[in-house]
Computed example of a mutant assay.
Amino acid sequence: MSDLPDTDFTQRFIFDDRDVRGEMVGLERSYAEVLAKHPYPQPVAQLLGELMAAAALLVGTLKFDGLLILQARSEGPVPLLMIECSSEHEIRGLARYEAGQIADDATLADLMPEGVLALTVDPVNGQRYQGMVDLHGQDLSECFTNYFVMSQQINTCISLTADGTRARGLLVQQLPADRQKDSEDREESWNHVTALANTVKAEELLGLDNETVLHRLYHEDAVRLFDIQPLKFRCSCSRERSGNALVSLGQADAQQLVIEHGGQIEVDCQFCNQRYLFDATDVTQLFAGGGTDAASETRH
């Protein structure tokens, strides 16, 4: 067993003598919760874990209250990957895939050829923002690194790995000039940090605690590691949200659905498999403004 400080966390660090910050993430329980909802093939499970780690890392860089949504789409065997991570560090995710078309050694290019990744920030207060990047990198680590450099003009280096049991991530990012004012010094410093970051191995990220990983990479640098911030799986679905979805259809269409489905509509959450049931009485109550409090029971 590894000596991780907790199974699900993010942890920030900073270089005392350089204009560089970093963050590490580990996912185990929340990763297992996501994988338990669907029978994912191993390459899909790994890709999903890497995207979960990326979402958890990025939430820490954005500094906002709200929801971060990562959505990767393609015309390949994996048409959709989707992760949602809140500023409260609550995470959920899912993948859609074509059964029988996933080779054991499938790469990102095999699974999601010509794929596109959308990064959406949905703040509680303020304007919704979306950025896009093509999935043209060798792996998700390279794709996200390219996204920050090309779309955000922020020097960033990201390493992501997952093995179906644990998902881990490492991010280093250049800060505005403060400790290092000279541009050549800044460039040399950044090259030093990223050259070492790129030497980290998947087995090190998956099997060692953060302090050990950072010591192996930067034992000659002054690096401060902050307290861990816990993460957890949580699905934001609810009976109320499902009822609102029915209301958005309009009363006539909702009532027709009840008839077509033998007297009961099933609304399933794709993230957690929770099933919400609505009969004719429930639908009448919804449109009368009575809400969902006295409605039918839910079941898995």
Rank of each mutant, 00 (worst) to 15 (best):
L231R: 05
D17F: 10
D17R: 15
L108W: 02
E203H: 13
L286V: 04
L257H: 08
C269S: 06
Q130C: 08
A95K: 01
F271P: 02
I69W: 00
V283L: 02
L231I: 13
S159M: 07
D8L: 09
F226K: 05
K201L: 13
P77A: 14
P43G: 10
E90Q: 15
R92P: 04
A55G: 15
T212R: 10
G164R: 05
E90W: 04
S296C: 14
Q138W: 09
E184W: 08
A295H: 04
E187T: 11
P230G: 05
D65A: 14
R234Y: 08
D17K: 15
Y147W: 13
E88M: 13
E50F: 08
I69K: 13
L257D: 09
V133S: 11
L205Q: 06
L135D: 04
Q46L: 09
A53K: 02
S189V: 02
I91H: 02
R299L: 13
L231G: 02
R224S: 14
A118S: 15
V121Y: 00
V172W: 06
R166Y: 10
A45R: 05
N273Y: 00
S248Q: 13
I69G: 00
F9W: 11
Y97M: 07
C143L: 01
L94T: 03
S141G: 12
V133T: 15
N244H: 06
Q153I: 03
V149D: 11
S248N: 11
C143I: 09
Y97S: 09
M1V: 06
Y40F: 14
Y97E: 03
S236F: 09
G115K: 07
A99G: 12
Q127W: 00
L217K: 02
V44M: 07
A177L: 06
G115Q: 08
I69Y: 00
Y31K: 03
D182Q: 08
D163K: 10
L205A: 11
V78G: 05
L47G: 06
G100Q: 07
Q101L: 15
V193H: 01
L67R: 13
L205G: 07
D227N: 12
A95D: 00
R73C: 03
V20W: 03
C269T: 05
Q130E: 12
Y97V: 04
A252N: 10
G262S: 07
Q274F: 00
I158V: 10
R168K: 13
T107C: 10
L277I: 05
S86R: 01
L225P: 02
R92Y: 06
G207D: 05
Q285W: 00
F148C: 08
V25I: 01
V59R: 06
E142Y: 01
I154K: 09
D282R: 04
A99N: 14
C235R: 07
C143E: 02
G26E: 01
R29G: 09
A45G: 10
Q130V: 12
T199L: 10
F287T: 00
I14H: 13
Y129H: 12
A53V: 01
M1E: 11
M132D: 06
E184D: 12
G164S: 02
L217S: 03
V247N: 02
S248E: 08
T212L: 08
M82E: 14
P43N: 11
E50N: 11
V172G: 08
T7L: 12
Y31M: 03
Q251M: 11
